[in-house]
Write a protein that binds this DNA or RNA. Structure first.
Lengths: 222, 222
DNA sequence: ATATATTTTTAGACAACCCTAAAAATATCT
DNA sequence: AGATATTTTTAGGGTTGTCTAAAAATATAT
């Protein structure tokens, strides 16, 4: 009788997943606490519990990594999150900065059939409204060539395929600049002083992007 | 700082709502316990808590009724449940006996905007896939003339507009008989012995309905 | 390498929701 | 009305997930 995980447990797994996506090294207690906006003590408690359920590999004072099962679970939650975000934007007409919070709730709904049907209904999307890849049912991510806008040279151009920052304020800022997924961006000038870029957006309006913005834009060179 | 209700609290309110829909009288502790599949002791605890939050009017040993706020909340949860059921059937292609459980989870997602947009996406449906009325955002139900199939006389006919029983087994039974919402049913014969009915379905096949089935079919006379 | 700072764990406690068993209140029967 | 049966509440306790404060382990600095 393996009972389903609680939302909290799923969120811890997701936090660990996101924290070590690249490194695969063990994640600190404090790092998890920051992700979860909770205390280190609570994290320790939860790591013991998740380790006992074989979802996490945990050594005291050394941090935690996901077990294969834990990793599969985390990926499945991310899949659900991104499919729901896609639904909210494509079908219900939400804008990309509104959907994260709602999807944080929807991702915990428990029904494989629901997700299978939702995926089908959406036409098996490979990327969500922020350009993040949607893992397939067996946990595989679609990878793509991408680079950060700040790495482009003057006179080079790219198409926006993703964003590294998902905060509402950042996404709204892009809305104001008329920058969305698929928008083409051509670098016109780079300031030697603060690295800010003058770019032309969709072969039209010229706008200035601070380096802080440019660092968060993922593009495919065009 | 009114924090949102927990799923459990919402489910208790829904249970009280359903238990006294007609009578409006106070609901027994044991009745609520049966609905919630929990112990009477737990119900007493919860009633104290809900009374303290002004969601329920509760007198010890006398049972509970919903306060205006409690009633509004219960109605809103029912609205969400029925809209999600409609979505699952109409958009994702679920069959009517599969959707209740999933909607039990979806009904607790917290976003007014989500429900507003879902309602619009579905074309402001007035009835869910079981024929139950979907309350409007301000809590009003669309009422309709309806009667129970067993009340019809021989040679009278009606259109199925709802079902009183929502169990999977009952709904599957209707599927097997080719009876769905909108199906027209004409009474051909009534047995004097066990009140079973011989009916013709959609002006075609003749089938026999036991009284137990006929009692659970809501029809509009045609 | 020893002291200091940081990180992590343990200890003890609280809130939400659940339980069983016993006590109290109410209802029913004769 | 008195006895019995039923319903409801109280008492005491368990689990999950949270917290703060103190103790223990590890890392850093001089």
């Amino acid at each position: 009788m393996t009972r389903p995980l609680t939302q909290t447990e799923e969120n811890y797994l997701k936090a660990i997943y996101k924290a070590n996506e690249k490194t695969k090294a063990a994640v600190n207690t404090n790092t998890i606490a920051a992700y979860m906006k909770t205390s280190a003590a609570s994290v320790t408690d939860m790591m013991k519990k998740l380790a006992q359920k074989d979802l996490v590999i945990y050594e005291r004072y050394k941090g935690a990594r996901l077990s294969p099962t834990g990793s599969k679970t985390a990926t499945s939650v991310i899949r659900k999150h991104r499919l729901w975000e896609t639904f909210l934007v494509q079908k219900l007409g939400f804008s990309w900065e509104e959907v994260h919070e709602i999807a944080e709730e929807l991702e915990h709904i428990n029904s494989d059939k629901l997700i299978t049907k939702l995926d089908e209904y959406l036409g098996f999307p490979k990327y969500d409204p922020h350009g993040d890849p949607i893992p397939s049912a067996d946990g595989k991510f679609m990878l793509r060539e991408q680079m950060i806008l700040s790495q482009l040279d003057v006179d080079e151009s790219g198409i926006l395929v993703g964003v590294k920052n998902h905060e509402t304020s950042f996404l709204s800022h892009l809305n104001n600049l008329n920058i969305a997924l698929g928008t083409s961006i051509l670098i016109k000038e780079r300031s030697g002083f603060d690295k800010s870029l003058k770019v032309s957006v969709s072969k039209g309006a010229e706008v200035v992007l601070t380096d802080m913005v440019a660092k968060n834009l993922l593009i495919r060179k065009s």
